[in-house]
């Protein structure tokens, strides 16, 4: 059985928001990548940003400073 681990998930209102965050993170060498939104957060579809829990503050600060939008940040076991 796959070992679950604690993960930071950032969700978005639109795919455009997700793409903006991906581009921003790549340009600023911030950690993480796009994954489908896990069902623990919302049983729909869409994209989210996955990173390590310890990157939460760093990412939140950088996105806020960069004027990037997101919906929610969660730490979940996936």
């Amino acid at each position: 059985m796959r070992q679950k681990k604690s993960t930071l998930i950032i969700t978005f209102a639109t795919t455009t928001q997700a793409m903006a965050v991906e581009k921003f993170c790549q340009d600023h060498e911030l950690p993480g990548r796009i994954i489908p939104v896990p069902r623990e957060i919302t049983a729909g579809c869409g994209l989210s940003w996955k990173a390590a829990p310890e990157d939460r503050e760093r990412l939140a600060d950088a996105l806020r400073d960069g004027g990037l939008g997101w919906e929610e940040m969660h730490i979940i076991e996936i």
């Binding site: 978005f12 209102a13 639109t14 795919t15 455009t16 928001q17 919302t42 729909g44 579809c45 869409g46």
Partner: peptide
């Protein structure tokens, strides 16, 4: 829309 698929209404955020 590719997002919020269980909502009955179209998502309100532009451009979606």
């Amino acid at each position: 829309s590719g997002v919020h698929s269980y909502d009955k209404e179209q998502p309100s955020a532009y451009p979606t």
